[in-house]
Design a protein around this nucleic acid. Structure first.
Lengths: 149, 149
DNA sequence: GTTTATCCTACTAAATAGATAGGGTAATTA
DNA sequence: TAATTACCCTATCTATTTAGTAGGATAAAC
């Protein structure tokens, strides 16, 4: 078998920076002893993230019920729930989108593939169903509390 | 919790068309009784794939040792190995690239994340390690023969 | 009323996906 | 050996997405 490394001009990875940064920010907030608001700038510095980009990520995490925020001096973001009660399935779906690799096996974002007439007879469908289930098993068994080192 | 559906303007799925088409083509070839070459046009029609796009995919599958080809009349592509001996791990790595979702947990395409000073202490790293292992378990246990319905 | 920090909209550069075009080359068959 | 067939290869193209930037509006604290 020929080495693949040479045949790729780029590498297709699957986790977006948005998700990565979001997870890091959530973990950082969860690791704080006090539940006082933490400023965006503090999180950005500690986790090496572009502050403006992080801003939009935290905003979406607030809108989806993971974070609360406080404006003005002494303001910032804080976790609304106990880290033990924040499932990775929920976090991933908000940050990354579907956990499934194809729309036709997505639990929360199901869509029929337009190029595939027979879902049950589709080899890709069956394989990706197994992959989805294996990923779900991980995300369902892990909470934000598990991410704290 | 707010519905996510409305917050996404697009959905980020993770399997490329290239991989999807490649898997379908391989499955189709594996399902042929005879081991005579099958023309690109035949595969493209049967699987609803752009012929020119499929051409490039089959070419890369030939270069990586999965397929053989024959030119001229009666030519086409054919499987070189027994479908039972073609592991999904190998197919996925050739078509899709790394199985890992981040470079820092990739077995075959490892790279250090530039924004992350401490790999061992990184929450994303640890989570993605588990996800990678769960996906590997599926891909290692499945061969092309399993995809035939 | 000034400072602080989140909120919100719009914009942008670079990369990538998913093709498409067009001809070159090799093998077969007549 | 000439015509046909079908793979081989390079180049190009467009829409989408990613990751980020800019700049100000708004609300809270002091």
């Amino acid at each position: 078998m020929v080495s693949e490394r040479l045949l790729f001009t780029y590498l297709r990875y699957m986790l977006s920076k948005k998700t990565k940064y979001g997870l890091k920010a959530l973990t950082y907030l969860a690791s704080q002893q006090e539940s006082t608001p933490v400023q965006i700038s503090g999180i950005a510095q500690h986790e090496n993230i572009s502050q403006k980009f992080l801003e939009s990520i935290l905003l979406s995490l607030r809108k989806t019920g993971f974070l609360g925020s406080k404006k003005g001096k002494g303001g910032g973001y804080y976790l609304i729930k106990d880290p033990k009660d924040i499932l990775m399935t929920d976090v991933m779906r908000v940050l990354e989108g579907p956990i499934a690799m194809v729309p036709c096996v997505s639990l929360n974002f199901y869509e029929k593939c337009d190029d595939c007439p027979d879902e049950a007879g589709c080899s890709v469908h069956r394989l990706m169903l197994e992959v989805r289930d294996s990923a779900l098993e991980v995300y369902r068994s892990r909470t934000l509390a598990d991410l704290i080192s």
